[in-house]
Amino acid sequence: MSPSKTAAPVRLLTQAAGERQTGALVVQGHPGGTVYLLEGLIMYAESVAAPGVGELLTASGRLAGRTWQAALDAGTSLAQVGHLLLEQGHLTRGELELCVLGAIYDAAYFALAAPGGPVEFLPGATHWLGPVIRVEPAAVTREARRRARLLDEIFPHPEVDVAPVTPVPRPPVERVTVTALQWELLVHADGQRTPADLALLLGRAGYATIQELRRLAAAGLIERPAPPAADQPDFVRLPGVHPTAVDARRPAAPADTPPVARPAPDPPRHALEPESSGSTGTVYRPPKLTRRKPGAKLPKDVGPNAPPLHTGTDEVLLKRIRTALRALR
């Protein structure tokens, strides 16, 4: 988040905007993102860490998935998805404009203010949403920088923004007050999902998510992740390669849990719902503080026939991939 790293995307964006260009500024990296310009003004931005307009509208139930998909099918090739949604009366203009504005500033923060990799400008590229609202690039870059500063005022540890979220098993104080969004995050954090996963799953803005996570970390309610290593932080969690993950089918694997001598630890609440993680089987983090009443049975979920729960993240991911493929047509 140092100025030297943010300078390149911002400089290229300012230059393209100055020349009133149309195209896409692609910032690679973790998480990276894309900012779309239309005649020098920002018309959309997207990032894997920020739910897009489609995810915001469908995850909240404002639009049925079917409705959104129909608009994508009909409007993607013409770059008129936004226009179609208005024309067919699915949204008011105010709703769509506010939703797009929120998505632009949210994604632009991740594209422009987070540490990024190589940047390139693709002239002529347009977005399938089509023109809904346009924003001055200078306002967006200024706001992205301000948002980075706000986060550091809350809790200056950027590793919280990307690491899988693990609630502490026991709060550090007797009485805890959380906001509604903090509650949602704690309930859905399972030691595997990253902040980006949680934002997509809950349909919450990516920035609002990491803002609350920094507050939770400052309050000692989520585990402090280890500071990032010298190499690039691995933003996308690969199922099955997490160093502390164990196979739920063999819960008593002694090599992975040396300090815990109990034969069948009762995992904390958040570990009771293992994520389905594709072909590699079900994994969960071994609990740090385990307490089980004598005689209590092992929960069903940890047994040999663990049912695949929580496919939400995968569904959202698949939807995004489908959307991205359509945009390439």
Binding site: P51, L56, L57, A59, S60, G61, R62, E95, L98, C99, G102, L202, G203, R204, A205, A208
Partner: peptide, 10 residues
């Protein structure tokens, strides 16, 4: 306060 169905705090 503007109450939107989707996530926003406006």
């Amino acid at each position: 306060l503007v109450q939107t169905d989707f996530d926003s705090r406006l």
